[in-house]
């Protein structure tokens, strides 16, 4: 049997667990209804379509976590991008959303890289400010503006029988995976995340790397916001709240180290699929919310006990 390298072990175990979830869910549906929806392509595609929002958020979050930082501003970056896009409307809707993402990312990056405020607290503050801006902008209600036809198409349309949202997710994935694996910026991200001082002394402009990662994260949140607004036909208050903690969980379940420097994009992808399928199996079983939360937490702990353990600090 081939030995699996350390970097790939989490990905393999998480993939096996995805299969276990599918088999358990199918066993349940066979026993109760005599059908197996989890192995029907149509059902799976539908699950992946709703998973695309989380997947895109997690892709951006991964860049920041690889640096050993964290981006808590994702919920309201997503919401602000979606709201501004539907307010502007027309052909400029999506560029507006991306511009919001770019600005928020630059601001986060400047605060963390130049002012050296811990990302945990700075992005939290930015999140609160964005919430305030959006409450002031909308009056605290869901804006009446509808999503543009292009946004609707991106979120709900199908191309060759596959939801367009999955193509968007795939495109984001290819870009992020390409950046991480093939570009100098990607290598700088890993180096800065491992030890910023050493990266700086090796000539990496670590502050620009940090800004770049935060911009990527906010842009991903903005794209997710555009899709989610298209999916629900409009933007609404608090639409991003459900994505923050699951996206961190997905990144970590995929084997990325929370203190930075280690992790592969494929892992994040598997982590997202794991969370999405776990959620859908639990909803098929009509599991009450209470048990869902408990299972969700237990799965994260259980998986990390298998492969996410740190070395002991002894010197």
């Amino acid at each position: 049997m081939n030995r699996i390298s350390d970097a790939n072990k989490p990905i393999v175990i998480a993939s096996v667990f995805v299969l276990v979830i599918l088999l358990l869910g199918t066993g349940y549906t066979l026993a109760t209804q005599g059908t197996m929806p989890l192995f029907q392509p149509k059902y799976l595609l539908q699950q992946l379509q709703t998973g695309a929002f989380l997947g895109i958020c997690a892709a951006g979050m991964m860049m920041v976590i690889l640096l050993g930082h964290i981006d808590l501003s994702i919920p309201w970056t997503l919401t602000a991008a979606a709201m501004m896009a539907s307010t502007i409307g027309g052909p400029w809707a999506i560029p507006t959303a991306l511009a919001v993402g770019l600005l928020v990312g630059l601001f986060n990056g400047l605060g963390v890289a130049y002012l050296r405020i811990p990302s945990m607290i700075f992005t939290l503050g930015v999140d609160t400010v964005l919430r305030g801006l959006m409450v002031a902008h909308t009056g605290g209600f869901s804006p009446k503006d509808e999503a543009t036809p292009l946004m609707l198409y991106l979120a709900k349309g199908t191309l060759l029988g596959i939801p367009v949202a999955i193509f968007v997710w795939a495109a984001v994935s290819v870009v992020i995976a390409g950046i991480l694996a093939k570009t100098g910026f990607g290598r700088s991200v890993y180096a800065t995340g491992t030890r910023e001082g050493a990266a700086y002394l090796s000539g990496i402009r670590t502050r620009r790397v940090i800004i770049g990662a935060f911009v990527t994260s906010s842009l991903c949140a903005a794209i997710a916001g555009v899709l989610l607004a298209g999916y629900s036909a409009k933007a609404y208050q608090g639409m991003g709240n459900a994505f923050l903690l699951p996206s961190i969980a997905a990144v970590v379940l995929g084997g990325t180290h929370i203190l930075g420097g280690r992790g592969r994009y494929v892992g994040t992808l598997v982590g997202v699929i794991l969370i999405v399928l776990l959620n859908s199996v639990l909803s098929i079983m009509q599991m009450p919310e209470a048990y869902r939360q408990i299972i969700y937490g237990a799965v994260i702990i259980g998986m990390l006990l298998v492969y996410g353990r740190n070395a002991r600090i002894t010197s």
Binding site: L245, I248, A249, V252, I258, L259, Q293, I294, Y296, G297, A298, I300, I301, L304, L305, G308, R309, N310, A311, R312
Partner: peptide, 14 residues
């Protein structure tokens, strides 16, 4: 378990 506190408590919070 030697899991990072931030992640462990994220899960136990759920």
């Amino acid at each position: 378990g030697r899991i990072q506190p931030i992640i462990a408590t994220l899960a136990t919070g759920a």
